[in-house]
Design a protein around this nucleic acid. Structure first.
Length: 719
RNA sequence: GGGCGAUUAGCUCAGCUGGCUAGAGCGUCUCGUUUACACCGAGAAGGCCGUAGGUUCGAGUCCUACAUCGCCCACCA
């Protein structure tokens, strides 16, 4: 055991070997833990996307969750850290299409099945990469349980949920204005759009006797009315009347209606109503359905003008706008232009192109009935959110929740189990849909025929399936894991996906199982560089976690991340710190080396003197304080505390002060001291293990402790 | 427009329920080649804890305004 230690920890060589030992021990699987590990503890990995190598954000959550899991395991819990990977529907499709583009191809060059197969292979390859990287980061996850979001059991669960929701009337097919990205050719939920302040010209256009202001003159061909505020005295006489207006396409008649939505203070207090391309206008139309015509589409799915635009047909939006404005100017239809009008525009979160509100038939989830119980469990504290101020953010969103569009016009994803009989639905406002739990329906219930059944080509929003992750992965309702581990203990993830994921898991978990999916939500922030900048490829400041691991070892990276992370705040990572913790790892190494040089003096029968008792008391006090911080989710403090104790108390003081005795002549005194030091040191290594698993496991293995187990399952030093 | 957060040493940050003579890492300076470690040790410099009020025996810590920065949410054409 006590073979000579080198001067330093050779992490690049030893870390993989130690990881292998852990894997071989089987202790990542809670079923293999020694009998004493009874109370279940479970964390689900927020499945990384199987489309790209890991970035530093992954390293952060791995460090946090692995630390939590290792701590729980050492505390005697039956600890399960359940790994998974995400097919990441839209995200992956975008990544893959980019690859195709580089080869001069697009997905439209192939059949949908072929595309699906290619992406499938691509994600499986990436899964291997990602899994390898997670292991390098020391993830003590139970790989025997690894789940992919396209595994049969997940898809089946998702289908069952969809069917149940449909039967419960929580899912409906609606024709609504949805956020549509003409680049990616799909609709989005409200969460996938970002808003940005822009400066655009505001055009004051003459509409017959009236003048109105708009930033989007190109949608004018879709105008179905003109609206004013009912209390606006200026326009009283026009309300309810048809007026004749001159347009670039000639004369046209349009009705003036009154609606509260119009703000008399803004512009001229007159608004054109374009229900096909503006959400407000759409709602105005719904309120005035009897008076005015319905939506007229002037822009198509490719972002080009439709035939109603006459000579402008086929033009792209901006091109058409310029042309139309020019023509209106020539016809004297423009009263004035306010150049730098500031307003916020909706953009696609991925490509930052302008989102077009488009009228489309999509599947929507009725959110209010789902949100209510999800609000209650947080309000009552059944689910605890850390940091607590995020609770307000959660509440605010939940209370103002809107129905969720879960249809995506992508190829890569879980296909929606909905079929329509084209024959029976022809021309009807309410189409006949057949929803199943995935199996193809035998026939149309209306015409009893099968021939005209067509499956909805859309796939689910990925978040609809990942929102079911906790109960789906644990095999709801009859799986042993579900019975043992649900509700899970901690949902550890970034605050940026509180709405996308956490809120939906709570809602869907409650809906399907009647129980909360987890007791605690712990939210971390976004890793910033040393100048507090977000890391991005374009800024060139991304830190590759595996590169850091290569240079300084996993332990150092983990420690740097963990000591810089407080809940809800953005952690900062700089290399000097990583280097500092690498040095700390060397320090641990050399402390052990020094102790082992005197290991012959170690004796389990050595009596404790006054000093040794004091030492013992001190380490216990440290353990107590560290444990308290761990229990209160103050991990950074806990880590720093052990760090400080190990280096500046144990090494700098206790060890230095002991040298006199160690190098002295009194063999009994030496034995007492060395024994006490080694025992105390063993506790330090235990306390450090969740943070720096590799070097501590290695060093612990060299200590002459009786009845020693692997450090990974050693008992946490309790107070 | 609403909400949240930040403002503490040169830099990046801790500081939980008020007691701090305010801490850490890195950086700076001085000294030290002691038989664990120079990826080290001993020591030092460096902060009116954003501003202005208030509560209190006592305030980075609680309250109120203000300023600056950042983030999130929001249908004003």
């Amino acid at each position: 055991m006590s073979k000579e230690l080198g001067k330093r920890f050779n992490y690049s060589e030893r870390e993989p070997e130690i990881y292998k030992l852990w894997e071989e021990s089987g202790f990542f699987n809670p079923d293999n833990l020694p009998k004493g590990h009874k109370d279940p503890f479970c964390i689900l990995i927020p499945p990384p996307n199987a489309n790209d190598p890991l970035h530093i954000g992954h390293a952060l959550f791995v460090s946090l969750q692995d630390m939590m899991t290792r701590y729980a395991r050492m505390r005697g819990k039956k600890a399960l850290w359940l790994p998974g990977m995400d097919h990441a529907g839209f995200e992956t499709q975008v990544v893959y299409e980019k690859k195709l583009k580089k080869q001069g191809k697009t997905r439209l060059d192939m059949e949908r099945d072929e595309f699906y197969k290619q992406v499938w292979d691509y994600t499986q390859k990436n899964r291997d990469t990602v899994r390898g990287q997670l292991k390098k980061l020391g993830a003590s996850a139970d790989w025997s349980r690894e789940v992919f979001t396209l595994d049969d059991k997940i898809i089946n669960t998702v289908y069952r949920t969809f069917k149940k929701m449909y039967d419960d009337e929580l899912i409906y097919r609606g024709e609504r204005l949805v956020n549509y990205c003409t680049t990616h050719q799909t609709a989005f939920s409200d969460l996938e759009i970002v808003r940005e302040e822009r400066k655009d010209p505001l055009y004051y256009i003459k509409y017959g006797p009236l003048t109105l202001a708009t930033v989007r003159p190109e949608t004018k061909f879709g105008d179905t009315a003109i609206a004013v505020n009912p209390d606006d005295k200026r326009y009283k006489e026009y309300i309810g009347k048809e007026i004749e207006i001159e347009t670039v396409l000639g004369k046209k008649k349009m009705k003036v209606i009154a609606d509260e939505y119009v703000d008399p203070e803004f512009g001229t207090g007159v608004v054109k109503i374009t229900p096909a391309h503006d959400e407000n206008d759409f709602e105005v139309w719904l309120r005035h359905k009897d008076e005015i015509p319905g939506p007229v589409e002037t822009i198509d799915k490719n972002g080009r003008m439709t035939s109603v635009a006459g000579p402008y047909e086929g033009m792209k939006i901006m091109e058409a706008r310029e042309k139309i404005v020019e023509d209106m100017k020539n016809k004297g239809l423009i009263e004035k232009i306010e150049e730098d009008y500031k307003h916020s525009v909706a953009l696609c979160y991925k490509c930052k192109n302008i989102i077009e509100p488009m009228l489309m038939r999509q599947w929507f989830v009725k959110m209010e009935p789902l949100a209510k119980p999800a609000i209650d469990v947080v309000k009552k504290g059944e689910i605890k959110i850390i940091p607590s101020n995020q609770k307000k953010v959660y509440m605010h969103w939940m209370k103002n929740i809107k129905d969720w569009n879960i249809s995506r016009q992508n190829w890569w994803g879980i296909e929606i189990p909905a079929w329509k009989c084209t024959a029976c639905s022809e021309g009807k406002e309410n189409e006949t849909w057949i929803i199943t739990e995935g199996e193809e329906p035998k026939k149309c219930p209306d015409c009893n025929k099968k021939d005209n059944l067509v499956r909805d080509p859309d796939v689910f929003d990925t978040w609809f399936s990942s929102g079911q992750w906790p109960f789906a992965t644990l095999d709801y309702p009859n799986g042993d894991d579900f019975k043992t581990f649900y509700p899970t203990d901690i949902m550890e993830t970034g605050y940026d996906i509180l709405f996308f994921w956490v809120a939906r898991m709570i809602m869907l978990g409650l809906y399907r199982t009647g129980e909360i999916p987890f007791n605690t939500v712990y939210l971390h922030g976004l890793v910033r560089d040393k100048d507090r900048q977000k890391m991005s490829k374009s800024k060139g400041n991304v830190i590759d976690p595996l590169g850091v691991v290569e240079e300084y070892g996993t332990d150092a990276l983990r420690m740097a991340l963990l000591t810089n992370t407080t809940p809800g705040r953005d952690p900062v990572l700089n290399m000097e710190q990583v280097r500092g913790y690498r040095n700390f790892s060397t320090k641990l190494w050399n402390v052990t080396r020094f102790l082992l040089m005197n290991v012959d003096a170690y004796s389990t029968s050595a009596k404790e003197g006054k000093e040794e008792k004091k030492m013992q008391k001190e380490i216990k006090a440290t353990a107590k304080s560290v444990t308290k911080n761990m229990e209160k989710y103050r991990y950074a403090q806990a880590a720093e505390e052990v760090y400080h104790y190990a280096w500046h108390r144990f090494a700098d003081e206790l060890l230095e002060e002991s040298k006199e005795i160690i190098f002295g002549d009194d063999a009994q005194e030496k034995s007492k001291r060395v024994t006490a030091l080694i025992n105390a040191w063993a506790d330090v290594l235990k306390l450090l293990h969740p943070f720096m698993p590799f070097v501590t496991e290695e060093l612990y293995g060299h200590l002459p402790i009786e009845d020693k187990k692997m450090l990974i399952i050693e008992k946490w030093p309790e107070a």
